[in-house]
Amino acid sequence: MTTKPNWRGMTRRQLIARSFAAGTTLIVGAGFVAAPNAAWAYEAAALKPETLATLIRMARDIYPHDHIGDAFYVTAVKGYDTAEAAAEIEAGIAALNAAAQGAGHASYLDAAWEDDRVALLRGMEKSAFFQKIRGGLVTGLYNQKELWPLFGYEGESFSQGGYIDRGFDDIDWL
């Protein structure tokens, strides 16, 4: 996944011009999904780009952290972008979009407000598809080492001599 500001030499304006879905949150183009500010882009391997974009949005709606960029959610779900998983994922996202249409939206991505999308997810939270995605995110999202500092977690400790000299008891506000 590239994080260059000008992906494939395209500016943000050109990326948007080549998109055909996803509104304000994600750019969906021919064979790729990208951030609106072109901070990252991901080339789809087996899934339809719209499906990927929906999956990314779904992942954030399941575990929303406003201080965490989409790049982490992309990393969390890109493992489903394989020939083996494609049929199941496409079917699951199709069901999600059908539920969205039943609630009056053109698609899941087209439901602009989080509350509306979460309501759709609650309606299908007992489904095997939802549980698969949610369960996978527990490690797929939270076991990314690059994510940990954003929560303050410091990770591996032994190589740094433990915390005996690094503040194991430095609490000073009690």
Partner: peptide, 11 residues
């Protein structure tokens, strides 16, 4: 017991 004291490592 020929083993060091705790270094408060947390794991």
């Amino acid at each position: 017991d020929d083993r060091p004291a705790c270094q408060q490592t947390g794991f």
